[in-house]
């Protein structure tokens, strides 16, 4: 038996039914409906979902390209760097700076006496500034007194033997 043929029991089932036919009253305006769709189609291009999707896709592509353009790497090429250096060197400010640098004379080495004078002057200045930094001279004095005091025997004896 051909496998594409219905088996007897299935054939009985299938032959007892049919596809539901559309009601007559609902089919009365069928042809006019078709004609209306033809007229509408002839009037102009239909702007449906596929068209909207295409427009959106193109828009997104352009937006993406614009974003990539804005966020492209900004590093200059070696040629650009050379050009910029040349421009900087030719400006009046850089010429002035290079002139000032040329005027600075190299420092002469100090003698031993001169060095000592400098250190003494620096020491005096530092002491004054340091006390200013701490602010409270009384606290400083108290600390100095405490340093001078000897610790009492009880406190100086170790509490435990190792």
């Amino acid at each position: 038996m051909d496998k594409t043929e219905l088996t007897p029991e299935l054939e009985k089932l299938v032959k007892g039914v049919k596809l539901k036919e559309p009601p007559e009253q609902l089919m009365a305006d069928y042809l006019s409906g078709v004609n209306a769709k033809i007229d509408r189609g002839a009037e102009g291009a239909h702007f449906g979902f596929p068209q909207i999707a295409i427009v959106l896709a193109i828009g997104l592509t352009f937006a993406g390209a614009f974003y990539l353009f804005l966020t492209r790497p900004q590093g200059e090429s070696p040629v650009q760097v050379a050009e910029i250096t040349q421009k900087v060197e030719t400006t009046p400010l850089s010429a002035e700076l290079s002139g000032a640098a040329a005027k600075i004379e190299p420092l002469q080495p100090l003698s031993l006496e001169e060095e000592m004078e400098v250190l003494e002057a620096f020491g005096e200045e530092f002491q004054g500034e340091a006390s200013d930094l701490f602010g409270d001279e009384e606290v400083f004095e108290e600390l100095a007194q405490l340093d001078e005091l000897e610790l009492s025997p009880t406190l100086s004896t170790p509490t435990s033997s190792v």
Partner: peptide, 8 residues
């Protein structure tokens, strides 16, 4: 969804 078959 509607039924598409009817009995003969």
């Amino acid at each position: 969804v509607e039924s598409v078959l009817e009995l003969i």
